[in-house]
Simulated assay, not measured.
Amino acid sequence: MREDRQRLDKWLWFARFARTRSLAARLAEDGFVRVNGTRAENPAKGVGIGDVVTVAAPHATLAVRVRGLGERRGPAPEARLLYDDLAGGPTSDKPPG
Rank of each mutant, 00 (worst) to 15 (best):
K10R: 11
W11T: 04
L12A: 05
L12W: 03
W13T: 08
F14K: 00
F17L: 08
R19S: 13
T20I: 09
S22V: 08
S22Q: 13
S22T: 12
S22G: 11
A25G: 09
R26L: 07
A28M: 12
E29R: 14
E29I: 06
D30Y: 11
G31N: 01
G31P: 01
F32L: 15
V33M: 10
V35S: 03
V35T: 00
N36P: 03
N36T: 12
G37M: 06
G37H: 07
T38D: 12
R39E: 13
A40T: 01
P43G: 14
P43F: 09
A44E: 13
K45W: 08
I49S: 10
I49P: 10
G50A: 11
D51N: 05
D51F: 04
V53C: 01
V55F: 03
A57L: 15
P58E: 00
H59L: 15
H59Y: 13
A60M: 09
L62F: 10
L62V: 15
L62K: 08
A63C: 06
A63K: 07
V66R: 05
V66K: 00
R67Y: 02
R67V: 04
R67I: 03
G68W: 02
G68H: 04
L69S: 05
G70A: 12
G70Q: 06
G70Y: 01
G70N: 02
E71Q: 13
R72M: 09
R73L: 07
G74A: 14
G74V: 06
G74M: 12
P75A: 09
E78P: 08
A79G: 09
R80N: 02
R80M: 06
